[in-house]
Design a protein around this nucleic acid. Sequence first.
DNA 1: TTTATTTTTAATCATTTGATTAAATTATTT
DNA 2: AAATAATTTAATCAAATGATTAAAAATAAA
Lengths: 214, 214
Amino acid sequence: MNNIMPAKKVNQSPGINAEAKIKAAARVVFHKKGFAAARTRDIAEEAGINLALLNYYFRSKEKLFELIMFETLSGFMQNMAMLFNDESTTLEKKVEGMAEKYIDLFALEPEIPLFIMSELKNNATGFIEKLPILNVIMKSAFIRQYQAAVDKGKITEPNPLHFIMNLMGMVIFPFIGSPMLKKIGNLKDKQFDKLMQERKKLIPIWVNAMLKAK
Amino acid sequence: MNNIMPAKKVNQSPGINAEAKIKAAARVVFHKKGFAAARTRDIAEEAGINLALLNYYFRSKEKLFELIMFETLSGFMQNMAMLFNDESTTLEKKVEGMAEKYIDLFALEPEIPLFIMSELKNNATGFIEKLPILNVIMKSAFIRQYQAAVDKGKITEPNPLHFIMNLMGMVIFPFIGSPMLKKIGNLKDKQFDKLMQERKKLIPIWVNAMLKAK
DNA sequence: TTTATTTTTAATCATTTGATTAAATTATTT
DNA sequence: AAATAATTTAATCAAATGATTAAAAATAAA
């Protein structure tokens, strides 16, 4: 049969690279609807291509999803890995970096947090196990610095996981709960965005205070 | 004479029970998979009833979902409304109450937070608009107490929405991010549960420190 | 009992949806 | 240009899925 993987090719005249258009469309649709609610026809329409092309280039909805999921997860983790393993910065600077990088990222693509958390719960293709970064976080420079600060009495809570939960909760949750939060605060999108920008500076201050609380 | 004792399916539950069984099963399946990924056949199987019964009692998958969603949301909001509007307790006590009630709730049903946030994003049936509670939170006793504390200089951040985001983030996010957090911390379910129990006491301490940070 | 009503089931329908095929079109190579 | 290869499309398939129907079974009413 003709289950031939298509050759890469420079495509110039009619529409630009159809494969790239499908991938970009898949990213949009999957992020917006999640795997289960996304239809291949949605993706084809978003990409402006014939439905058969999707299977021609990516073989199946599952394969295409795995690609998008892996790229999305990698983008998400890259920031974390960089910041956590930077030996040259203080704990405080790492928190500032986390807040700034992630709020910038999610301000551009607000659907990423809920997408990642939802699809990781299913973990249909074992994504969690395929993320080596997660295994080394607890051995990162960040964790060593945290432990040292605990030993010196500069941080009250000895378990760094609580700290990670709090930091991620403060940074990520507003994007996950935005529909509810916008309703509670009667916020337009612009006002919400402004709040998120404020949080880039506020979260490090709050976190600093928390670390010394007892 | 009627000596026919039909030993057919006497032990099968009667009808008024079937409706309740379907509803309970729908709650389990919808919470676990979300609306899009849940199949009516999943629900029928979970309930141990014939598929046609689902439509007989609830007319459609959508109608059944709306029922479950509404009940789940109401349960979620009830705690919040009670605590926010209690004139007799201090801000600090309200925070303690929030942490305790919600962690207890989510420890029993850990899928609720992600379920609610995911389905609210779609907001297919306008759930958000149908929740009057959300409209009155900003006029609650909690908010008045917050503003008073800001005026007295006891709280640094003037916008109570930041506070709500932080509190919800710290309480709710760990349940939303549990697959990732369990992997990072190499935690078994029991260890994770223990961390959540710890947070009932820790969150009020952290929040207290945050409020005075500057 | 007998009749009527409610509940349950098996079978089936109609639509949706992921995927395939064969042909048409476009591009590249000779 | 002719031949070959790559890309795209229209048409269709097959399975999944929400929903319906008609009949059977159980229950209540007479």
